[in-house]
Simulated assay, not measured.
Amino acid sequence: MNDITIGADISKDHIDLHSLPDGQTLRVSNDRKGFATIVRWITEKGVARIVYEPTGPYHKAFEQFMMAQGLPLSKVNPRLARRFCEATGRLAKTDRIDAELLARYGQLLEPRTLKANPQIHNDLKELHAARLALIKDRTATKNRANNLTSPLLKRHNADRLAQVERQLKAVDHAIMTMIGADASLSARFDILVSIPGVSQITAFTLLIEMPELGQLDEKAAAALSGLAPMTRQSGRWNGRAFIAGGRAIVRQALYMPALVACRFNPNLKAKYHQLKAAGKPPKVAITAVMRKLIILANALLRNKRKWTPKSA
């Protein structure tokens, strides 16, 4: 394979591509005809990776088509890509420039390539995105109820809340049905719910939002979930460590299980009280328990075994 890196800037109507080190460029329409043109364009290149940013609904068809062709894709965080662009001193921003800078980002930093996701994971991801939107809608509807005085609007608001609850149940049932119909996902789900404090909702959130679980080492699992502490040190100064980055949805899903684990999981309960006794703030101790939970889930999935309490 030649060391060719392609940057792809994806917009609603078209895709701009830039190839390095040869510097060739291409613009195609963002549709199947354009995707086929891209495949023909790179057939002779022996591409190491195609680097692109997620752009809402506009990148999904491109991603699925290229994965079906077996091409190496690297989906990078837009914030990190933008900071890389700023570090190069390029202040201008156009689609062609963005494609070139994405290619340079991929060539220098070699971001990891995606593994092909089966269609079931794409369907689950779509259902879970709808579920998160419904939860936001439910919260907004409940908050709105506190400020309404008109009887008509109160009835409308109550009807909307009941509708959201019905839709949430339907989405949850669809997610559980899909997981139950897949032997691999069902086995992974059973392992996760065996951990004290991990509910069905938390389990399917981890399966959907962090499918890499079970294939990572401890540090990578903590970092990917955004629960790895970031050290701050310069000369003689030592700042307070903090967590940053990672997948916010995973962190949010682990917060309540961590609170439950602090009470009912003997090992994590001992860890929590140990940190509190050492003078750590409660939030820091809970974050440490969340990190332990994701590391535990990763280890159990890697070893394909359910949680069992440690013998005294």
Rank of each mutant, 00 (worst) to 15 (best):
residue 111 P to L: 07
residue 129 A to N: 02
residue 13 D to Q: 13
residue 187 A to V: 08
residue 281 P to N: 10
residue 97 I to H: 05
residue 301 L to Y: 09
residue 146 N to S: 12
residue 149 T to Q: 14
residue 277 A to L: 05
residue 218 E to W: 05
residue 221 A to E: 04
residue 15 I to C: 07
residue 183 A to W: 06
residue 291 R to S: 11
residue 104 R to E: 12
residue 246 G to N: 05
residue 170 A to P: 01
residue 19 S to C: 15
residue 228 A to N: 03
residue 208 I to A: 09
residue 28 V to P: 01
residue 51 V to H: 03
residue 260 V to L: 14
residue 235 G to C: 03
residue 287 T to D: 13
residue 215 Q to T: 15
residue 11 S to M: 09
residue 6 I to A: 11
residue 217 D to R: 07
residue 225 S to R: 00
residue 45 K to W: 08
residue 237 W to I: 07
residue 127 L to F: 12
residue 287 T to R: 08
residue 171 V to E: 11
residue 53 E to I: 10
residue 82 R to W: 09
residue 13 D to S: 15
residue 215 Q to P: 02
residue 211 P to I: 08
residue 172 D to P: 02
residue 168 L to Y: 05
residue 85 C to L: 04
residue 116 A to Q: 13
residue 139 T to M: 11
residue 209 E to H: 14
residue 200 Q to V: 09
residue 120 I to V: 15
residue 60 K to N: 00
residue 181 A to G: 13
residue 205 T to V: 12
residue 43 T to P: 00
residue 121 H to M: 14
residue 295 I to Y: 04
residue 209 E to Q: 15
residue 215 Q to I: 01
residue 254 L to H: 09
residue 142 K to M: 05
residue 145 A to Q: 11
residue 215 Q to R: 15
residue 10 I to H: 11
residue 148 L to D: 04
residue 209 E to M: 14
residue 32 R to Q: 09
residue 181 A to H: 14
residue 132 L to D: 10
residue 58 Y to I: 06
residue 65 F to V: 04
residue 89 G to Q: 05
residue 90 R to T: 12
residue 13 D to V: 07
residue 43 T to S: 13
residue 162 A to W: 00
residue 40 R to T: 00
residue 168 L to F: 06
residue 81 A to M: 07
residue 36 A to H: 02
residue 243 I to R: 03
residue 65 F to L: 05
residue 163 Q to K: 05
residue 90 R to H: 06
residue 108 L to S: 05
residue 49 R to Q: 11
residue 21 P to A: 09
residue 22 D to K: 10
residue 231 T to K: 03
residue 279 G to N: 05
residue 7 G to A: 12
residue 161 L to F: 10
residue 85 C to G: 10
residue 289 V to K: 05
residue 42 I to H: 01
residue 108 L to R: 11
residue 48 A to Y: 03
residue 291 R to Y: 08
residue 69 Q to L: 01
residue 312 A to R: 13
residue 59 H to F: 07
residue 144 R to F: 05
residue 121 H to Y: 14
residue 92 A to R: 04
residue 210 M to Y: 13
residue 5 T to R: 12
residue 174 A to T: 13
residue 220 A to G: 02
residue 270 A to H: 14
residue 163 Q to V: 01
residue 170 A to M: 11
residue 61 A to I: 01
residue 83 R to I: 07
residue 210 M to H: 12
residue 242 F to L: 08
residue 61 A to T: 06
residue 82 R to I: 04
residue 272 Y to D: 03
residue 168 L to S: 03
residue 39 V to E: 09
residue 147 N to M: 10
residue 92 A to T: 04
residue 132 L to S: 09
residue 206 L to K: 13
residue 129 A to P: 00
residue 240 R to K: 11
residue 224 L to N: 04
residue 76 V to Y: 07
residue 44 E to Y: 00
residue 121 H to A: 01
residue 24 Q to R: 15
residue 38 I to P: 01
residue 64 Q to N: 00
residue 37 T to M: 12
residue 89 G to E: 04
residue 205 T to K: 08
residue 186 S to T: 07
residue 221 A to K: 02
residue 246 G to S: 06
residue 9 D to V: 11
residue 280 K to A: 09
residue 231 T to L: 07
residue 85 C to A: 15
residue 132 L to V: 11
residue 155 R to L: 15
residue 170 A to L: 14
residue 54 P to H: 06
residue 142 K to D: 01
